[in-house]
């Protein structure tokens, strides 16, 4: 999904959130047990803390860096052979330098690839969670409740068009939907962060096929400065 489309979904869900908060008051008036609207908005903000387009931007940057370098690095072994054939007496030190350079580039590319893949997966996963979340908020905030608009609910009850218990049941169901979706989204995002953290733990602390030359190929972070 494009960034613009996701932003549009978020904007619409904010309107739906307002509508849902209005419905909470109606539900309370009808005897339903509903949360405070401040509590509902706080839950929304908690989920809204993640800017998935920035995460996607990181993923794009890393994947682009890997793609650009990999397209060149794949030529290095062939270049090395070409050089040895073209200059049969090329010195051992230069030959070793070419080989060591290729090894370091490969090691860094492995780290870059894994880092990019982990970030792409997290961005994609969180985007899917947010899409589902925004749709759930839209459903919870659907302005017609039992066929009447929230603002006209009190009048409809007075006129006997709709029963208070029916309104209460409908709004209670929406509260359940909102709470369940919020829990699922919150837990899902936390899980995505956990997975991303674990993946980068491995990249940061491990030694993914690193050459003996310690200048490159490792991203050991803890206490390595």
């Amino acid at each position: 999904m494009s960034n613009t489309a996701l932003t549009a979904m978020r904007t619409r869900s904010l309107d739906s959130l307002d509508s849902f908060c209005t419905l909470l008051r109606v539900g309370r008036d009808c005897g339903a047990i509903v949360p405070d609207k401040d509590e509902v908005r706080k839950r929304y903000r908690q989920i809204d803390r993640v800017n998935v387009s920035d995460l996607a931007s990181d993923a794009f940057m890393l994947a682009g860096a890997h793609h650009t370098l990999a397209a060149l690095a794949v030529q290095i072994p062939g270049r090395s052979v070409l050089l040895r054939n073209a200059w049969t007496q090329v010195g051992d030190s230069l030959g070793s330098m070419v080989t060591a350079h290729g090894d370091r580039v490969d090691a860094d590319l492995i780290v870059l690839r894994d880092w990019a893949e982990a970030t792409v997966a997290a961005a994609s996963g969180i985007e899917q969670l947010l899409i589902t979340w925004y749709r759930a908020v839209d459903r919870a905030g659907e302005p017609l409740v039992c066929g009447v608009p929230a603002d006209g609910a009190a009048e409809a009850v007075r006129a006997g068009t709709v029963s208070p218990s029916l309104l209460a049941d409908d709004i209670s169901a929406r509260v359940t939907l909102f709470d369940t979706a919020a829990d699922t989204t919150d837990n899902g995002i936390a899980e995505m962060f956990h997975v991303l953290g674990t993946a980068t733990d491995d990249l940061a602390g491990g030694a993914p096929i690193a050459p003996s030359d310690s200048r490159s190929g490792q991203l050991a972070l803890a206490g390595d400065e």
Binding site: R49, V50, L55, D58, F193, G197, T200, A204, L219, L221
Partner: peptide
């Protein structure tokens, strides 16, 4: 990692910055 705040986001922000610097 400008995408998150809070404990989880803050940790990853620090880590991503360090990894980017090293890479």
């Amino acid at each position: 990692a400008s995408w998150g705040d809070g404990a989880d986001g803050g940790l990853l922000r620090e880590r991503f910055s360090a990894m980017a610097r090293r890479m």
